[in-house]
Design a protein around this nucleic acid. Structure first.
Lengths: 241, 241
DNA sequence: AAGTGGTCTAGACCACTAA
DNA sequence: TAGTGGTCTAGACCACTTC
């Protein structure tokens, strides 16, 4: 007599069939009613089994249309979890921002291409440096905020220790849902190099970030330059399951 | 009449009380029986509500001893999920490896410091480039494998398209549990710059990776240089919940 | 021994989807 | 309109924890 619960046995059997290819990805699983008959179990028990498969991401269910196989195997991947945006923008958590310039700008074609935004649109650009006092700055950041949020100007100055994305979230109720980040190497441009106190064209870390809301609409974009040896981006990935 | 399900309403009410501090972290939640009476719902419905709280990590339950509050609020963070190491080492997924050199080395103090390994230990160093055929390589990688796995020499040559970490996992049964990755900017060293066909000292992306098993023991370490414009590291973070 | 959460049954009504 | 999955009830037995 197996001490394992009936619904787990049913779940395992179904997972086995999915892995076997008996129920290919994209096809429909038997209905609850059919599974009740096939396994001679109650509907509740069958539903518990299906929920287990759902938690594994193997199936999806829709009222009215049925159960569909989503994956052949539970995906075991690596994941990184950050408890907040501060963890992502690690530097921001520890060093204050020093605003250099705030300016409404209209993007030309080159800038638009670099930012991945439509050209000709109006943005508020907030340029700032971060770093410990008494040392050369660790990085230069240009933040591009939708001109619609130009009120953040005052907020940014009033709260030098808070992230602009945070300010937009709490003052405009626009919730950030995703952040895309692209990291590459690039020579530090002359104008920025002067402020960062490094030779123009010396090696720098270039980070481009796009903050989007649930609908995928761009809320905020930023570009950062960090000279070599002044900033490192670290992440730890943990294998799931 | 709210169209939201009863068990969700109960879950919300309990979550609210937990957030309020009515049920402090570490204390016991009322028993199922008590909740059935309090909300005038069936046990099944109460259990559905409790499962919802369990999925949020707010409570834990143990047969015989009861339900305990684990957290005051659901933790909402950002997470990045990669389905495989290939996703992390994005370049590897698309471009073949070309081994330049394989050599047993003993780390001197500087190299040990750069790698974060004990000095004086023996390692097999596998140097390779990656990139599309007919173009300059996109990057140079030095892989450091425990000398104990020197058999991978043959495997690496036999499987130019597979990750070394993958080969170690499948042939030695050593499962990688975590990967730490640190990204910074650095001038490309002269010797490597020659192979990558860029001027010595030009801006490069420097990536240091540590692969560890469950116990935290270092299985594999690697360093990579990528010239500017030949490689970008992208990631998307998704806010949880 | 009493009480807890875990499992399971049998039956019901409903909202939604697709023909 | 028929069939799907989502919700909910009432009741039962069990394994486990605590006293």
């Amino acid at each position: 007599m197996p001490s394992i619960s009936l619904y787990s046995q049913i779940a395992e059997e179904l997972a086995r069939r999915i892995a076997n290819g008996d129920y290919p990805v994209g096809s429909a699983l038997p209905t609850e009613h059919e599974l009740v008959d096939a396994f001679s179990a109650s509907r509740h028990t069958v539903r518990s089994a299906l929920r287990q498969l759902q938690d594994l991401g193997l199936i999806s269910r829709r009222r009215g249309s049925g159960t569909v196989v989503e994956a052949q195997r539970p995906r075991s991947g690596y994941s990184q979890s950050l408890s907040s945006l501060e963890d992502l923008v690690q530097l921001a958590a520890r060093t204050p921002r020093s605003v250099q310039k705030m300016q409404e700008v209209v993007l030309d074609i080159d800038q638009a291409a670099e930012l991945g935004c439509p050209p000709g649109t109006r943005w508020l650009r907030i340029s700032s440096t971060r770093g410990e006092a008494g040392k050369p700055p660790a990085g230069w950041t240009d933040l591009y905020v939708d001109a619609h949020y130009s009120k953040v100007k005052k907020l940014v100055q009033a709260h030098p220790d808070r992230l602009v994305s945070d300010l937009i979230e709490s003052h405009f109720g626009r919730r950030i849902a995703t952040v895309e980040q692209t990291i590459s190497a690039a020579p530090v441009p002359a104008e920025i190099a002067r402020v960062l106190e490094v030779p123009a064209g010396s090696p720098g870390l270039f980070i481009l970030r796009h903050y989007r809301d649930q609908a995928g609409v761009l809320v905020l974009a930023s570009t950062s330059y960090h000279p070599a040896d002044r900033y490192r981006f670290s992440m730890t990935l943990i294998r799931e399951r």
